[in-house]
Structure formats: C-alpha cells, structure tokens
Amino acid sequence: MAKYFNHLGYNKDLKEIARKLRNDSTPAEIRLWVKLLRAKQMKGYQFLRQRPVLNYIADFMCKELRLIIEVDGESHEHEHQWYKDELRQKELEKYGFTILRFWDEDIFNDLENVSRVIEHWIDCHPLAPPSKGELQFSR
C-alpha cells in the first residue's frame, strides 16, 4: 500500500501528535528554537517546529533547504534508539532531506558551535529545487 504526502512529505495524520510535542518541547529544543531558529534568525530561513514529515515528526525543519535538525537527549543513547534513528534518517535522506543532529549537552554548553555548524551547512549547500507534485512512500 502506498501513502501520498504533500508539501515535502507533510503528513496531516500526525498533526495532533506534532502539536502535543510542540507544547511539551524539551528544554534543549526550546533553547535552540528561541536562540537560533525562530523568526528566520538563521540566515533568514524559516524553520518549523515538530513538523510531521513522512511517518515521522522532525524536531525542526526548513522546507526551503530540505534540512531537518534533530535534538538528541538521553533516550538516544541506547543502542535500540540509535538503530531506529538510523533507519529514520535513511528514509528521510531517501526523500531528499539532510539531517543534522545535536546533543542536548551541546545546545546548553556550546550553542555558538551549534550555530556555526548550521550556518556552515547552509553556506555549503545550494537551495533545493522547488518541490514538484507529491512524494510517494511505499510501505
């Protein structure tokens, strides 16, 4: 069975879950959002919080750049979660997204370097071409 997604993989079925996650953001996600990503602070690009994409919810996503930023905390230190994260990342990359990952600790203790990494990625990667039609995802 195939499922179709509009707008760079937007999955409206996950809208309510994404809303709940936005309301229950982790302290690291809040810090990254407030200090670097909201209101086009990052080089003028718009980032969205807790964006439903394919069968996942990205912590932060810039549609224009096809860039997803993930914030990893304690739960991502377990081998099982690493495996799930790797599968998720491969699937998202298959659809043209790039994923940058940062640890909670880095966001709290070295936000300047986190900013430099994101800015460097933006400077080194051309904008993605506009989306054409729908993405198809097969299960």
Results as ranks from 00 to 15, higher is better:
M1D: 12
A2P: 12
Y4H: 11
F5L: 11
F5M: 07
N6G: 11
L8F: 15
Y10P: 06
Y10N: 08
N11E: 05
N11V: 05
N11P: 03
K12R: 15
D13A: 08
I17G: 05
R19F: 13
R19V: 10
L21F: 10
L21N: 09
L21E: 07
L21C: 04
R22C: 11
R22T: 07
D24T: 13
P27F: 12
P27R: 12
A28G: 11
E29C: 07
L32I: 12
L32F: 14
L32W: 13
V34T: 11
K35V: 12
R38D: 08
R38W: 10
K40F: 11
Q41N: 06
F47M: 10
L48W: 13
R49L: 04
Q50I: 09
P52D: 06
V53Y: 07
L54Y: 14
L54H: 11
N55W: 07
Y56E: 07
Y56H: 13
M61R: 04
C62Y: 10
K63V: 14
E64G: 08
E64L: 13
E64A: 14
L65P: 00
L67M: 04
L67T: 02
I69G: 02
E70Y: 00
D72N: 09
H76M: 02
H76G: 01
W82K: 12
Y83C: 01
Y83I: 11
Y83T: 05
K84I: 14
D85Q: 05
L87S: 02
R88G: 00
Q89R: 09
I99L: 02
L100G: 03
L100W: 07
F102I: 03
F102H: 01
W103V: 03
W103K: 12
W103H: 09
E105F: 09
I107L: 08
I107W: 06
I107E: 04
F108M: 08
F108G: 03
F108D: 10
D110I: 00
L111K: 08
N113V: 01
V114P: 01
V114T: 05
V117A: 02
I118M: 03
I118C: 02
I118F: 05
E119Y: 03
I122P: 00
C124P: 02
A128F: 14
A128Y: 14
A128E: 11
P129E: 07
P130S: 12
K132G: 10
K132R: 12
K132H: 14
G133T: 11
L135K: 05
L135R: 03
F137Y: 15
F137P: 01
S138E: 15
R139V: 14
